[in-house]
Design a binder for these strands. Sequence first.
DNA 1: GGGGGCAGGGAATACGTTTTCCGGTAACTG
DNA 2: CAGTTACCGGAAAACGTATTCCCTGCCCCC
Lengths: 336, 336
Amino acid sequence: MEPEHVTLRDVAREAGVSYATASRALNGSDRTVRKENADRVRAAADRLGYAPDLSAQAIARGSSSTVALVVNDIDDPYFSSIAAGVTEAAQEAGLIVTMAIADRSPGLELQIVRTLRGHRPRAVIIAGTRTTGSDTHTALTDELSAYQESGGRVALISQPELPFTTLSIDNYGGARRLATALAGAGYRRFAIVHAGDDIRTSADRRQGFTDGLHAAGLALDAADQIVTDFTRAGGFQAAATIASRRPEAVFAVNDVMAIGLMSGLRDAGLTPGADIAVAGFDDIAAAVDVLPPLTTVRVPLHDLGRQALELALSGSAPTHVDIPVELVLRESTPKT
Amino acid sequence: MEPEHVTLRDVAREAGVSYATASRALNGSDRTVRKENADRVRAAADRLGYAPDLSAQAIARGSSSTVALVVNDIDDPYFSSIAAGVTEAAQEAGLIVTMAIADRSPGLELQIVRTLRGHRPRAVIIAGTRTTGSDTHTALTDELSAYQESGGRVALISQPELPFTTLSIDNYGGARRLATALAGAGYRRFAIVHAGDDIRTSADRRQGFTDGLHAAGLALDAADQIVTDFTRAGGFQAAATIASRRPEAVFAVNDVMAIGLMSGLRDAGLTPGADIAVAGFDDIAAAVDVLPPLTTVRVPLHDLGRQALELALSGSAPTHVDIPVELVLRESTPKT
DNA sequence: GGGGGCAGGGAATACGTTTTCCGGTAACTG
DNA sequence: CAGTTACCGGAAAACGTATTCCCTGCCCCC
């Protein structure tokens, strides 16, 4: 009924050799095995449908063949692009990805890292929304340090305040250049839709944008800085306030918020791109399919995921890599 | 320098008990251990930063705490929504998800399933694009059968021709009802943008749609059935042909294709919803953010992922579950 | 006070691999 | 032809945990 797992022993018996020989024949060992025996073993393995137990391999070899990935929300294109890059690179390296979703909760993130550590992954990649100053902050640092000291690799995405290898998106610079460009295009009265400053990414982008405006001699009223959720729904909700303030241009600190905002504005009777300019950040795939196409700042998310894994696997000392971004002007911010 | 992993033995020594006792104290065992000892063990574990080696646990217990998930492209909202549902349910069950990306290649999918089997996951969920009649088809069936017979659970999404637990989206019925609705709205000349019939999902939706048209007394010229890739790019490319044929309404067999098509049409000087109606299938999040909002057929992707995992874990005999879909008429197909 | 039960601790074994060590055979070298 | 390699097979240890089995000591009951 339940044919217990076919094990290396079974293969060896079937092939008429010791299981040491079988082991050597089936995976790359430095020891060579006579061709005839090797063939017999492989044939037996095929016949029996043998698949090596990766847990047993991991424990015997002392290192597993997995990498751990923590994201906030796999259904958000920002994270799914990163995940795609990480997974792609992992598969090329013959590694398997274990993925966990932190649901934007630092507590959950910490708990996840704890659990994942039990897998003894070769590397752990965290693409979270680091919130500054929380108490779980140091707990996470401790956990990752312990992991790193026992030989694990860590790479973080956009959390430069932690003492690990980090890939930093140029959030500040990108937002600042965006502000400069919009001011140059003739816009004068702005609003910004952002999340709480405890979310680093949001805070940096907001700061970059306002600094860019200042440099152009423009200021931003507090009432025109609308704080909401870091999601599409957040952007959508902000539309009501924006509609009542009627700025000439709005910067939403990421594309999903910007897209939600555009839908919300339309519901309020305003046409994005005509009545009001809208810009976002990230250049997710959907940015080019909304109408009007969204002005944004391109972040090479897919590559970012790739690089994060490659950097982690390379095993270099903790380092910081700056990921350049690129301004992408589209019709949502027409020249005035 | 490299403090080797702290193991159960270390914890036991630190706590002054045998490691059998430590093992019993740290995870739920049927055996009870004196409270004083249990506390000492837990304290020691905390102090040393002990995390149980899940591989070792898996091999000792004979069952791991992971589930395997295979998707075609995590960066596609269809799959990322499913993945979100699967992962959510897995985390609630205390399980960890290992994810692999098959990149729409049956061969790769097979290879992945082989590798994943080595993890001895509690369940494997496959959300692929089953292509009918390929030679890897039976190889995959064999592989999954072997896995299932050794105690594993399998759940597939929309691949009803395989002898495993399957969640079938009502692709045919949804597309057929869509056709009926569009015909009822007054459209007469149609086109379909679809993928090759080797992709079951595409074939079923195409068939449902044309059958629906037939029932309404309408027919579809072969030249109005455009075959292209099952992706946004595929839809985009199809726009040129559509623009030259100028049907009144186009059905793209999924939303990402429909959205690509809309962008392509616009580039060709046609306004979707005004010059030409467009409908898709899936109701991905972006469907409501494009302009005009996309008429589509809603598939509860997130729930689908959840159910797939729950069904697999429940361990019932292989069964087929029908996932109902819902027509969602939006402005991309205005009443004529 | 003696016997039976039971709670709980520890030694040892099992899990499925890899890898070290040992031994034997065949092929070279001088 | 003897001695040294090179090659290769097998026995056994190791990895970190769960679990079985045994043993001790205590409590309870008659």
